[in-house]
Write a protein that binds this DNA or RNA. Structure first.
Lengths: 257, 257
DNA sequence: AAGTGGTCTAGACCACCGT
DNA sequence: CGGTGGTCTAGACCACTTG
């Protein structure tokens, strides 16, 4: 088990004169520590973490300070609170969270879940573009996956997925096919890689030969191009994907704050 | 000034037996009350609200409870905290927040701000579609605005905006032209309508005659169609707009949690 | 120095879940 | 019932801004 050592409080704060430029409140130190614990696999996806009181004792702080650390981690979707039961490590391996990052909604409100149909899976060298986004050297090993997302009968999304090779060694089309759940839940259980956040870049493009074929639309038809960088703990990018969305009967939904 | 009356604490909580089905914690009652104060215009955009201590006394609760109410309002972008200075009512009338809801980013990272060029402004009866989204009767008065958004020389977005007529009486092309700031900041200062949140629906479409003309692209060219419902306090929809985005040199950026 | 938000504590009690 | 998260308090002190 990792060990928590708070910075000396009086060094960390302004003890009469000098304000530390690297000041970080206690609850944030605790949060950072807990993130490292998650990275280290001390608590696995779906597990309950120790109770707030227990952690308060362990870190030698008050319960309120632990709460604040957990609060932030919960709003960042790393932990999930359940009143009366405990606090749990977030997981994609949960029907309600299978497609946590998928913003596509059918026009008719039908909520039958999407189904992933893998097409190909191979090991390739990183192109300059992919290398840049994933923080790899050009030519470094990358797992390249293509797949379709179906809503009912319709193929609505064609994804081209690039995964950091070191983390996903041994990923095969076979494994992708046997997934009842989402692809991220496979990544989590089989490779110990948890996607925490992502950034998407959207544009409208004309369907090319490949994507039109996969989606069954005419070449030149407008498609929604969604480029996603997905990150694990510590904002480390581990996946980049290019998705072609057919928005004839679906739309991409976004909340603005 | 509105007056705050907390629900009787023992009635509100389970006093021995019955748990109130409408239980709402104190800090939420305070939050709701403060939102009503904002709606009532007690504190205007950009104003400082009373200090946490002052509010604690006024509401007869501890500072921590007031803090929690303000915390939520701050994360929902209704208030802005500034350490050492106070807590302020959020406003679109601030250079940093002019295009708070605009997710469009230039490929080259150029950050010269967008410029709004109004094209038309007229009073029209609500179509069934618009009436439904804005919660109006079909045929109710609606202000219809068309405008272009320029990034440098390029026209990148063509917007068709529908505004609840009752709230925006007297909006003219003239007034829209004289805006140095964003259109939402005009709405705020001239009409007292503050946009708090919005929901957007995105699709890829082919440019029609009108939008291709306005944006200077070929008919049939793929455009990003962004339909936005913007809401004021209490989630009341006050604006619906349809925007055609040319994504040749820009992309729509979205963070996923 | 005074005033504001930000952090932290220790303790009380409530709401919810399981046994 | 005991254990967990959720709310609330009263008070101390730190950090930032302004006069």
């Amino acid at each position: 088990m990792l060990k928590f050592n708070a910075m000396n409080r009086d060094n960390n704060r302004s003890a009469g004169r000098a304000t530390s430029p690297t000041f970080s409140p206690l609850y944030r130190q605790i949060k950072d520590f807990m993130i490292r614990s998650l990275e280290a696999g001390e608590w696995g996806p779906g597990d309950a973490i120790p109770s707030e009181g227990e952690l308060a004792i362990r870190f030698n702080v008050s319960q309120g300070t632990v709460r604040k650390a957990i609060d932030e981690m919960a709003t960042e979707n790393m932990l999930v609170r359940r009143q009366g039961k405990g606090t749990f490590v977030a997981t994609h391996n949960d029907p309600r969270l299978f497609y946590r990052f998928l913003r596509l909604v059918p026009d008719d409100g039908d909520d039958t879940p999407a189904v992933s149909e893998p097409v190909s899976c191979e090991l390739v060298p990183a192109s300059p573009e992919v290398a840049a986004v994933l923080g790899l050297a050009v030519g470094a090993p990358v797992v390249f996956v293509e797949r379709l997302l179906r809503f009912g009968q319709r193929s609505v999304v064609f994804d081209q997925i690039y995964l950091v090779g070191d983390l996903f060694q041994g990923l095969t089309l076979e494994k992708l096919r046997n997934v009842e759940k989402s692809i991220y839940s496979l990544f989590e259980s089989e490779f110990g890689v948890r996607m925490i956040s992502a950034e998407e870049h959207l544009r409208a493009v004309a369907a090319d030969e490949r994507s039109s074929g996969m989606l069954g639309v005419a070449v030149g038809e407008p498609l929604l191009l969604v480029e996603r960088t997905a990150r694990s703990y510590g904002n480390k990018p581990v996946e980049w994907r290019r998705g072609f969305y057919c928005t004839a009967n679906h739309y991409y939904r976004n909340e603005l704050g």
